[in-house]
């Protein structure tokens, strides 16, 4: 393998951390995308999102452990199952809060997150459950300048495809036009003949399903444990704030961008790697309070 140094850092370490940053960025992007879609449409800050990401990983593990259903079917089934739980939460609880302050939605979803995490911790413990990489994606590829584990490459590509597809649906299709219009003026959109309450329910289910999908993708990398969402969600909220609440493109670009920034910080100044995203968030809030891609920016 060809190795060289950049600013005194070996290329292997640099590209290794860049890849790690891209993988983290992929999860930041997928999760913040779902949060942005949900916030835009429901005006709810969905604190359950991290728990729903974790549920995706758990459902994949349960499908394999209890029913013998492997990774590829789980990649479809787990997001659908998690999405259905989202639909139930929206229909039975969240829809009562739309006319109230954001704080009520935040508190409810925060409480739900703690409940879901607690239940799974009681049942399965906190040490983590192994979930194997599918056979097709085992091993790695030598790119000449670095060794790329196949599964991690797959996660980055799959995440990019999901993010860009979601962006396309929202920004370039009739369904997306309904969503954007209903975000601005749901009363008028409903008076045009669109069933807005049903659209809201399906939007929440889809946003939550995206979190579930990210959870399945994460299961072979991080192992399955009840705290995996709680660890991630704070960073994801910072990503959403930096990108601009409700901005789809902002979530994708900022998610991947901040993952890379975090990875590079680990190479050049490791002490700051855990805080760099929050420092950026403070700077963005002071200079562009609506976020880099927010509508009022």
């Amino acid at each position: 393998m060809m190795t060289f140094t950049i600013f005194g850092v070996s290329s292997v370490a640099l590209f290794g951390q860049l890849l790690l940053g891209l993988i983290n960025g992929a999860f930041y992007a997928m999760l913040s995308l779902g949060l942005a879609v949900i916030f835009g449409m429901l005006n709810i800050i969905n604190f359950t999102h991290g728990a729903q990401y974790m549920m995706g990983a758990f459902v994949a593990w349960m499908l394999l452990d209890y029913l013998g259903i492997g990774y590829w079917p789980a990649l479809v089934l787990a997001p659908v199952i998690v999405g259905i739980t989202g639909v139930i939460i929206e229909r039975t609880m969240l829809h009562r809060l739309y006319k109230l302050d954001h704080l009520y939605g935040l508190l409810l979803t925060f409480g739900l997150a703690l409940t879901i995490q607690g239940l799974l911790r009681n049942q399965y413990g906190a040490s983590g459950l192994p979930y194997a990489i599918p056979d097709e994606l085992r091993g790695g590829t030598n790119l000449g300048f670095m060794f790329l584990p196949n599964y991690r490459g797959w996660v980055v590509v799959a995440s990019l495809v999901v993010c860009l597809t979601t962006w396309f649906v929202i920004e370039r299709t009739k369904l997306g036009a309904y969503l954007r219009a209903a975000t601005e003026n749901p009363t008028l959109v409903q008076a045009m003949g669109i069933n807005v309450p049903r659209m809201i329910t399906l939007t929440y289910g889809t946003g939550v399903g995206l979190a579930g999908l990210a959870g399945v993708l994460a299961a072979p990398i991080y192992s399955v444990n009840p705290n995996m969402g709680a660890d991630l969600i704070i960073v994801v909220f910072a990503v959403v704030v930096i990108g601009g609440m409700g901005s789809i493109l902002g979530s994708i670009v900022t998610g991947f961008g901040l993952g890379v920034v975090e990875g590079l910080t680990k190479v050049f100044y490791p002490e700051a790697s855990a805080t760099v995203i929050f420092v950026i968030m403070v700077i963005v809030l002071l200079t562009k309070p609506a976020g880099l891609f927010g509508r009022n920016a």
Binding site: T183, L188, I194, N195
Partner: peptide, 24 residues
């Protein structure tokens, strides 16, 4: 009836504030 079903009976409403969507 909810407003979406009223609209589908064949009534269309043009509001005073025009209701043009800025994101479209």
């Amino acid at each position: 009836l909810p407003s979406n079903r009223i609209a589908r009976l064949g009534l269309a409403f043009c509001p005073e504030e025009r209701g043009i969507f800025s994101s479209l």
